[in-house]
Simulated scan of single mutants.
Amino acid sequence: MINLQNTEVQYLLLFTILLILPKLLLRFQIPIGISSIFLGIGAGLGLGWFQGDDLLLMLSRLGITSLFLFAGFEVEFEELKQNWKELLGGVAQTMSITLVVAFVIHLFFSIGFRAATLIALGIMTPSTGFILNSLKNYGFSEGQEYWIRSKAISKEISAILLLFITLQSESLVNLGSSTLILVALSIFLPLSYKLFFKYIAPYAKDSEVGFLILTALICGVITKKIGTYYLVGAFLVGFIASEFKHFGKSEKSEEILKNLQMFFSFFIPFYFFKAGVGFTEDLFTLEGLYIGLAFLGIFIPLRIFNTYSNMKFFMQDFWPDRKEITVSLLPTLIFGLVMAQIAKERFQVPLEIISGLVIYTLVSSVIPAFIFKKVPPENY
């Protein structure tokens, strides 16, 4: 008889179910991240498995760092510079609204402004990696994909900057020392890439992806240790790498990008599963449900209005594509979960607010899957 309390059996079931079932559920319009979270809730609350599990923690770190490495790698300066006025206008408008939302949350819930800013970022920031990975599921035109990608990336860059300032603004000493560490990483990373190209790449064929993933994991841990989060360091690694000819501007760049996408697609379900395992019973309250529904009723229309008005003033040529672009930018799955975790652990935000943010995050992230028609899968 199989002993379900055996750790090896639990790991075998974890890998078997998590790597197959979420993909099967895609046919019912359920994103992999959402199904993985609920599988984690079932394993954690239902079975009591994987609580404080170190292997699951490492797998989840690989998932989140590789995802934000991919998001940073997708940044193309030439594209951003080409339409900087339109993108800057959208970013400035979104960041202004985010700060206003933070102030309202600060007053309404009587929590600190820094904590309120995290909640506002979780509400307003599109999750670029999740969105980019989902675009292939819909039959969008190149122009629509371009603006979805550009707006998501530009908003995430500004949100990461605001996140860094928020987390380190407790004192000028913290802000100054953390900024110096990021500057040091920004100087060290190009040097490490050059050394890699000179001494490793010529003798280790196809080692680029492994090197980037290892570097993103190390930098993610460093930025986590200084009080920000994994995503800051991992995004920085991809952001800087995208400007190197060998990584982002050569014939191998498409292959590297494809391999990165395959890697994070394999590991990111473990991040969502880990998030689900971390859910506790006290997160599931009626008050949390009411707050989540209020967030959805207020902020989904606000975000739609924000993008519509931005396109009306700055992107009139793409006004006919407003629905595709706007709805595609609604998912906040990664940023929402990350902000909820930080707000809970570092700022002791009341659980009903965390619960409301999680509900908002889950629902907002499935909206595109139910509105847009999926492209039929390729025949095998």
Rank of each mutant, 00 (worst) to 15 (best):
Q10T: 09
Q10A: 11
L12S: 11
I17D: 07
L21C: 08
I34S: 03
S35K: 08
G40W: 11
G42W: 13
G46V: 15
L47T: 08
G48I: 06
Q51G: 15
G52V: 04
L62N: 00
G63Y: 00
T65R: 02
L67Y: 02
L69N: 01
F70Y: 06
F70A: 00
A71C: 09
V75F: 07
F77D: 05
Q82G: 12
Q82V: 11
G89R: 10
S96A: 12
S96T: 11
L99S: 04
F103P: 07
F103Q: 06
V104M: 04
I105F: 01
H106W: 06
L107G: 11
I111A: 08
A116W: 08
I119Y: 09
L121W: 13
T125W: 07
S127F: 00
G129F: 08
L132R: 01
K136F: 01
G139E: 14
F140G: 12
E142G: 07
E142N: 13
E145A: 05
E145G: 15
E145Y: 03
I148K: 06
I153W: 04
A159V: 05
I160T: 09
L162A: 02
L162K: 10
Q168P: 05
Q168L: 07
L175P: 03
T179I: 15
L182R: 04
Y193L: 14
K194G: 07
L195R: 09
F197E: 10
Y199I: 15
P202C: 12
E208F: 02
G210K: 15
G210S: 10
G210H: 13
L217R: 13
G220Q: 01
K224R: 12
K224F: 09
Y230W: 05
A234C: 07
V237I: 05
I256N: 01
N259V: 06
F270I: 01
F273R: 01
D282Q: 10
L283F: 02
L286K: 12
G288E: 01
I291R: 15
I291C: 05
G292N: 03
A294Q: 12
L296Y: 11
I298L: 10
F299G: 09
F299S: 11
P301D: 02
I304K: 02
T307Q: 05
M311V: 06
K312R: 10
F318L: 13
D321L: 06
D321Y: 08
R322M: 01
E324S: 10
V327N: 06
S328V: 12
T332H: 12
L337P: 02
K344C: 15
R346S: 15
R346Q: 13
E352N: 13
G356T: 08
L357G: 07
I359A: 03
L362E: 00
S364P: 13
S365T: 13
S365Y: 15
I371R: 06
F372H: 06
F372C: 10
K374N: 14
P377M: 07
N379A: 13
